[in-house]
Each structure stands twice: as C-alpha cells, then as structure tokens.
Design a protein around this nucleic acid. Structure first.
Lengths: 105, 105
DNA sequence: GCAATATACATTGAATATCTATGTAGATAT
DNA sequence: ATATCTACATAGATATTCAATGTATATTGC
C-alpha cells in the first residue's frame, strides 16, 4: 500500500526538513522495521509531491562531504496534510467500527 | 484514496453477503455520509477482487423482482483481510506516533 | 590497500490501478 | 408522466506503482 506514502512523507517533513535516505530510515524506525521502503519507490513520489507544490527541495553538503537533497514541507503541503489526515481518519473510523476496535481519539 | 476500498469491502462482506449498491450505502452510512463511493468506481474493484479469488458472486432476485449480484467473502479473502488489516494497522501506528494520537489498541 | 557495504540520488518502462463518463433497465414516488 | 432511486456494466484516458538499473562517494572490515 503505497497510498500511505503521501501522509507519511508530509507528516515526517512537518517535523523538520529531511532527505530521501533518512526518510526511509525514519519510516523503518517508527514502524519497528515493518515498513521498508525502497528508494526507487520513494524518489518518484518526492518528485511528484514537489511538482505539486507540497514540498520543496534544496541541495546541501553534509559534514562528511556527501551531497543531499533536503526536502521541506510548504504551506500548501501543510494544508494538504490536514486534508489527508481527515481522509485517513474517516476511513480509520469506519474500519474501527467494522473491526470492533476503538477509533483514534 | 481508493486504496482503502479493499479492506473496507472485505470487512463489510465478512459480516455477511452484500451487493454493490448496498455496499455503497453501508460505507456512506458507517462514515456518517463522509465517504461517498460512486458505482463506476466500485464495480471494477468488485470484479477484480472476484477475479483474484477473494470474493465470489451469485445472481439473486430480490422480493420486488430486482436482480442483484450478491458477493460473499471466500476463505482466501478472509486470509487476505487479515493481511490487509495488519498492513493498515502498521501504517496507522506510525501515523499515530507522528500525529501524537493514541494507536488503535 | 582492497573489497564489501552503506550512503545518496535518479530514471525508465512495463504492469496495474483509478475513476469519470456513459450506457442499460426496471421500480417507486410525486 | 416524469423524476428519482435502485442496480449493474464497461470503455478508455490518465495516473500510479515499483522493480530494475545506473551513477557516485564514504566508510568499514580485513
């Protein structure tokens, strides 16, 4: 389910700028190793989100001389995240009912 | 987000057989009117899920003479639902962390 | 010093998914 | 009568997905 990439990426970037490789690590980390994204899957999504204006990028050189493309969320991206969150929680609420579990807050 | 159609449809059919039009009503109902699926969106998904063996169908005639195609979940579909549920909850758990809300159970 | 691994980004392209528009048809309500 | 509701279906343009492949530098282990 790669449909979850959008809210996940936007949510991560809302916490501060990050770059492709680190985002993959972060997702793996937060999920306890369950979610393992490939780079070939992520980069096209980042490019698309940038093209759509939800995130923006800037090249930077890290301490060790490695080049990285840092992404940050835009104002438009923050609005989009709010909409994505609403959508997600709507579905989540229905599934929670069907599965007999508590809805999130 | 039509990626949620699969777990939603399988979850609804796990509660008992149903048909296209009623599934749309059920989703609208459970979501308090938020999720409004079009029939042109749903039917191809039903056909695909049947082709993949997760659900099966039979034509029936309702009390008022209307023809309906009832779908039921298969054993394979039940297994798939378990997997889908796991996937969903994995993403849900990560989003819950990022959003600072409680994870579902 | 060399090989293996980790870091870091990018694109191509085939396969698949999405969903609007459109069509059919009978039932019910006004 | 006519509008609305019930009920299913497909075509096809558009978008998405992701594995495979390619480039390049840094670090670690031996």
């Amino acid at each position: 389910m790669a449909a979850s990439t959008k809210p996940l990426i936007l949510s991560i970037l809302k916490e501060g700028k990050s770059y492709g490789y680190l985002i993959i690590q972060k997702v793996k980390d937060l999920s306890g190793g369950i979610l393992e994204w490939s780079d070939g899957m992520l980069y096209p999504v980042l490019h698309r989100l940038e093209k759509e204006g939800y995130i923006e990028s800037e090249w930077m050189i890290s301490e060790n001389g490695r080049r990285r493309k840092y992404y940050s969320i835009t104002e438009q991206g923050k609005l989009e995240l709010i909409a994505e969150k609403e959508d997600w929680l709507s579905v989540q609420a229905v599934l929670a009912k069907l599965w007999g579990i508590l809805p999130t807050e």
